[in-house]
Computed example of a mutant assay.
Amino acid sequence: MLPIDPTKKIFFQRWISEGDLVIVYERHTHMTAVKVCGGSVLQNRFGVFEHADWIGKPFGSKVLSNKGGFVYLLAPTPELWTLVLSHRTQILYIADISFVISYLEIVPGCLVLESGTGSESLAASLARALAPYGHVYTFDFHEQRAALAREDFVKTGLSILITVEVRDIQGRGFPENFYGLVDSIFLDLLQPWLAIPSAGKMLKQDGVLCSFSPCIEQVQRSCESLRTIFTDIRTFEVLLRLYEVQEGRREFSGDDDDGSLGSLPCKRSLYSSGRSNGKEKSNAQAVMPRPCSEARGHTGYLTFARLNSCSGR
């Protein structure tokens, strides 16, 4: 059960084969995970796509339907998998995931414990960060969720780097055979303070723990537990603001030279010019970024702590 098997490496296959999982990209708001089967077809608003035509093509290919419509066939990277996976539980998105991997100091060869597995969006990114020699052991108390997660990791080719086990970490703690061997631990639990004492025993000296909680009351109680054996305790909230970039035409005059055009990153071309009230006026085609009308707000709080080397466990 323990790491690390140096013979296990990810094989990044760039050519689509029978049985592969591909992400069918229609537009940035609509993607679908499809398992390639030679005798199957995909039907959508663009027409009928035969899977047999996909086999042998490189990931990223543009393929045509019987009507001349097209989609792109993309590799199931952790980022894309997060966007198409089944939401069995609340999931972490890319902004939180990248922050977690950075602060947990995940590098190739690390041994990482996670509880709970949930919809497995984080585990896929952890596996890529610690490849090719590291390993993720992820635990979930729900047997059906754990079984579905195992199936998904086989589909995405990450099963050699991720082991899914059924265990109630809040009630039983982590398995004792990880004692003092773990580089990093991630907790996504209703009562993370119950698992913190066990997590402290599993970590190497100077190991790092992260706890994800949606409510500040959970954070406060977790910090009280962390203070007994951890140091450098920090809590973050990652808020993401997206911008839409659109082309538009804007009229301006010579008086705009005072810097008011600083909001226009790029003037494309001048279409017309004339005089109005004695001043030059022109229309310019410009690229204008604007905040999206819909933005994902609060997801949760990320609390990080480092094992105190003087804790004595």
Rank of each mutant, 00 (worst) to 15 (best):
P214M: 08
D183G: 05
E237S: 11
P6T: 13
G278S: 05
F186L: 07
R234P: 01
V48K: 08
S260E: 01
Q13A: 14
V36C: 04
Q13Y: 13
G248E: 13
L73E: 14
C215L: 15
F141G: 00
S211M: 06
V63D: 10
S276G: 09
C292M: 15
F12A: 15
H87L: 13
G259V: 14
A295S: 09
S40C: 11
A146T: 02
K155Q: 03
V287L: 15
K155I: 01
A131V: 04
C223Y: 00
C223F: 03
S184Q: 05
I55Y: 06
A124K: 04
L240A: 03
N277T: 07
L122G: 09
K201C: 04
A75D: 01
E217M: 13
H135P: 11
V219C: 15
R88Q: 06
I169F: 04
R249S: 15
L148V: 06
G60S: 14
N66S: 09
G312W: 11
D5P: 10
M31G: 05
A129E: 07
F141A: 10
A147Y: 05
L122H: 02
Y137T: 02
F70I: 07
R172P: 04
Y179V: 00
G39L: 09
G312L: 14
V245M: 07
G262I: 11
A146H: 03
A286P: 02
N308E: 09
L130Q: 04
T32A: 13
R172F: 01
P291Y: 03
M1I: 01
W81I: 14
E114Y: 09
T303R: 03
V208F: 03
G19R: 03
A195T: 07
K267A: 12
L270Y: 01
Y243F: 09
R145T: 10
G69W: 01
G300W: 10
N277K: 15
D183Y: 05
A199S: 13
Y271N: 00
K35T: 02
D140H: 01
T117R: 09
F212G: 12
F59Q: 05
I55P: 00
L42P: 04
V34L: 05
L122V: 09
G278R: 07
T303A: 11
R150A: 02
K155F: 08
E176D: 11
T77F: 11
G56N: 02
F178Y: 05
R313Y: 07
Y72T: 11
L209V: 04
P58R: 15
S211V: 07
A149I: 00
R296T: 03
E224R: 02
R221I: 10
R296M: 12
E247C: 13
K57D: 03
C292S: 05
L122F: 02
S276E: 08
S260D: 06
G248L: 15
G173M: 12
G312N: 10
